[in-house]
Design a protein around this nucleic acid. Structure first.
Lengths: 338, 338
DNA sequence: CTGAAAGCGCTTACAG
DNA sequence: CTGAAAGCGCTTACAG
């Protein structure tokens, strides 16, 4: 069943059928009805390969997810997927390693499949800076800001990571914590973790706290397994810590497990704060105090902006979406020092 | 840059270039080298729309994930994705609601995009029974068995759910538990939960235990939030339960949180067993005793079978993949009754 | 408003 | 082994 059959069956020509299918204004009401009737009767779907061959574009939107274990991305992805589906868009999803070069992958994919647009879940600005040029379709980066890069087809939505991380430190400070360890991400590159780390530095400084990364910081990837190991290493090195700030909930969850295995109670012996506000953090024992990133808004604004960019040329948008510090059960208020 | 340019640049004809690109045997070594050199030099990628238009098929493999909150599927999906990628296949992923009609969705997608094959993560046999016919490409169903359906293009790989669920009940019985509640899935349809429930019934019977679903069973969807609520409802109705068997880890995690909120300790006051063996279950406090489904094998065998089915006609395979009862920390051995 | 025709970038019999 | 040609199923100027 092709458009040709529809033409034959409806008594109109190929061209007219195509115009009806594409909602062109210059078709008679009669032709439209007749053609649509036949189309419906046979449940006809135009062949998308042929269509896209002519139109020189894929209908699909590509979503590149960086890091597979990150529950936050799973959450955002789910929302993106459903919003895109509501808009009749097809979605091509690829999971990349946390340290993979997402931009290089996108460039390849663009040549191969010509998606209409890209949505990046996580990304290293360094890659965007040096390799993004060949991408000409609308792109949106989520959870990292591309403002400084100046590409006119790249928008970004993010939590103000520096501010949020700073708020965590301020909060811990206010709760009486002075010896705070930090877990997750890494010092090199410009991944999501770098802004959070920057916020940590600033907040430590303004609270008059020393922060020596070599001692108080332990890098790791975003997974429970890595969080577990990183927490062990950090605690071995710095047993006197009273609080741990993990740069992701999955890391925090792994760390809490490590603490339990050391016979340490959270928050009795040591406090833990996460980052992301994934649903797992609300069901852990104890419930995790964490920064809630607004995944609904991130997804919503991201998809909206991408779709707009696809349909009309639009200047790029760079926006911070509000966050909340969720004070739950994993932080203890320290009494005055004895 | 099209195949035409490559032809011009290499001094060969369109046809020869195409043959080189498609690894046809009847091209001279010289032509192959010459063409490949030009292709590499320009980083040429053939236009997949044009290609598939001729070949009448998409290159993509479609993966339909049923239920977005199910960490088990996230785990399997990740593996599928990477195996498929290794094989140079493109992957189209769609997340469906847990109660959505995945077969209807697939039929639509087949018309629209003509994927080479389908991989179903979860599925209701009822839908397969009544609507699968129009699907003619190779398909694989994971985590539910399609053996009884008799379609020759549908394979399936699953854990022996009935046996595994039975083993959980046997284990709880052996630990001294007599009043066991069950959480998750539903009684209607033929979703994943139905085989597990069947195993529960059989095991209860063989251990001489009464099992009244109206009292001891509480259905719910696969998410922590639902597990939480279901556990509350069940415990309110049947406060005397000494153990809970949740048909999914996410449900179990939600339930453990609910228990904690009731001031009940796990496993001190009540034992909990999950199902799936997701990584979260290994990091919870306490670590969750659960059935480990072999996601690696499920993914591996699924992809392998699908790829084979795509390349050569093959009779369908229906296989059970081995499971393990992971005895961890959430079950207490009850002393002899006082 | 509608039809006939060109063409999107490939693949694959068909000759030679 | 290679080239010329037809054709996959569409869209879209171009006439009328």
């Amino acid at each position: 069943m092709t458009i040709k059959d529809i033409a034959r069956l409806s008594g109109y020509s190929l061209g007219t059928v195509s115009r009806v299918l594409n909602d062109h204004p210059d078709v008679s009401e009669q032709a439209r009805e007749r053609v649509l009737a036949v189309v419906r009767e046979h449940g006809f779907q135009p062949n998308s390969n042929a269509r896209h061959l002519k139109m020189q574009a894929q209908s699909a939107v590509a979503v590149l997810v960086k890091g597979t274990q990150n529950l936050l991305f799973a959450d955002i992805l789910e929302r993106i997927q459903s919003r895109l589906q509501d808009n009749g868009e097809e979605v091509y999803v690829a999971y990349l390693d946390e340290d993979a070069d997402e931009v290089q992958y996108a460039v390849q994919l663009a040549r191969l499949r010509r998606p209409k647009g890209f949505l990046f879940l996580g990304g290293d600005l360094e890659f965007f800076r040096t390799e993004f040029r060949p991408l000409t379709v609308p792109c949106v980066l989520l959870t990292n800001s591309a403002r400084g890069l100046g590409y006119d087809n790249l928008s970004s939505f993010t939590t103000d990571d520096a501010a949020a991380a700073g708020e965590v430190i301020d909060y811990l400070y206010a709760c009486g914590h002075r010896r705070i360890g930090v877990l997750g991400g890494n010092l090199s590159g410009e991944q999501i973790s770098s802004q959070r780390l920057r916020g940590v530095y600033a907040a430590m400084a303004r609270n008059g706290l020393d922060f020596d990364p070599a001692r108080q910081y332990e890098p790791c990837r975003y997974s429970m397994a890595e969080g577990y190991r990183a927490a062990r290493r950090l605690l071995e090195r710095e047993p006197g810590l009273t609080a741990l700030f993990a740069l992701g909930d999955v890391i925090a969850l792994g760390a809490m497990r490590a603490l339990a295995d050391q016979g340490l109670s959270v928050p009795g012996d040591i406090s833990v704060v996460g980052y992301d506000g994934t649903s797992s953090s609300a069901y852990s024992v104890p419930r995790l105090t964490t920064i809630r990133q607004d995944t609904a808004q991130l997804a919503e604004r991201g998809v909206q902006t991408l779709l707009r960019g696809i349909h009309y040329a639009q200047p790029p948008i760079h926006e911070a979406v509000p966050f909340t510090l969720l004070q739950r059960e994993s932080v203890r208020v320290l009494g005055p020092a004895p």
